[in-house]
């Protein structure tokens, strides 16, 4: 049974959705944060792929592209001891209060 990310040849009759969306600010920034951390050697592309593939299959299939990048970033930064889940929770709550 291939992993959820290993899609080649999976039975899938859904027509390809050709709608394109303009990337929002946060999507472009999380993309950039990954590149910056990569340039600093804090995380590798392969680690990021591994983190994305480790998401529960329902999340892998339902999260948007940059939502998966965000989830992967969180997994890796916690794993490497750079951030804790509590810190991220607290910062997110604080930003919400600031109106985000």
């Amino acid at each position: 049974m291939p992993g959820v990310h290993d899609r080649g040849g999976w039975p899938d009759d859904t027509p390809i959705d050709l709608t394109e969306h303009e990337y929002s600010d946060w999507e472009r920034r999380v993309d950039a944060v990954h590149q910056v951390l990569g340039a600093q050697g804090i995380r590798t592309t392969d680690e990021m792929r591994r983190a994305i593939e480790s998401l529960p299959p329902d999340q892998y299939e339902s999260l948007s592209y940059y939502e998966k990048w965000t989830a992967a970033l969180e997994i890796l930064l916690i794993e490497k001891g750079v951030l804790t889940a509590q810190e991220i929770d607290a910062k997110a709550a604080q930003l919400r209060e600031q109106g985000l």
Partner: peptide, 22 residues
């Protein structure tokens, strides 16, 4: 309001900046 995941991405970037990593 931003989605939960979008908010977390902003939170992560802000924390990395506070720690001087970017």
């Amino acid at each position: 309001p931003m989605s939960e995941v979008a908010l977390r991405s902003v939170a992560i970037e802000a924390l990395l900046a506070e720690k001087g990593l970017l």
